[in-house]
Design a protein around this nucleic acid. Structure first.
Lengths: 116, 116
DNA sequence: TATATTTACTACGACAAGCGTAGTACGACA
DNA sequence: TGTCGTACTACGCTTGTCGTAGTAAATATA
């Protein structure tokens, strides 16, 4: 069975994560679940990939973090909130995706014979 | 103006190059022209990217190289020919692309407001 | 009650692909 | 004569991903 390409996803992880933050702040574990669910189990982001994306995006001003406790328990979690700059970046990445997709598909054979 | 994403293309350079070799053997400079033309000038592959892809793919058995002189002149060029293994790989990459594209598009807002 | 699993991270180091830079060399063209 | 196009090769840096490992508290299971 064909699996998804982590090399293609590579260029989209920031976009995917930012999408998960569009409506409300969230944290690592929850976002990884969201990605798994929304992709119907087809994409499971690696923890290290996710957390390093957070710190990179925070450095770039696309997200802001804050510590908040999980409901009930006194346990702290690190939440991330998308910034205006992050929304701009996300929109740009979507545009970029659409353009790139069109280019790539000029080099993809849709119904190539699976015999090879 | 939005440009294409080299991070997304990254996962597709092998596929793009192999596409150019499907019908007949070719060489570096010609392939770079084919890519530029077929993408309507939107994607110009870097020389180093192209040539390092060649040697990687030759090592992996997806292409074979041979030296042949350009018509008329006695000048030698390195041609690449796709192998059966390369055709299989190309077909697999196309399948992979279609699957990956579907996943990514679940995280892309089509008509996001450009105000951000 | 003991143990395993889930949740929620951090740190470190390796690796692969892309890319900037530079250099070579030959032919055509102005 | 010098620049432009053709056709490469070599070197080393950067970036993002990922394997591995470790920590620690909460919850589920035996």
């Amino acid at each position: 069975m064909t699996e998804i390409s982590s090399d293609v996803i590579r260029g989209c992880n920031d976009t995917i994560i930012l999408y998960c933050l569009l409506s409300e702040p969230s944290y690592g574990y929850e976002i990884s679940k969201m990605i798994k669910t929304r992709s119907e189990g087809k994409y499971i982001i690696k923890e290290t990939t996710l957390y390093s994306a957070f710190s990179r995006m925070e450095k770039n001003g696309y997200v802001e973090s804050y510590s908040s406790e999980a409901e009930g328990t006194g346990k702290k979690r690190t939440y991330y909130r998308i910034t205006d700059e992050g929304r701009r970046y996300y929109a740009e990445k979507c545009e970029e995706w659409n353009l790139t997709k069109e280019v790539i598909e000029r080099f993809i054979e849709e119904n190539i014979n699976g015999d090879y």
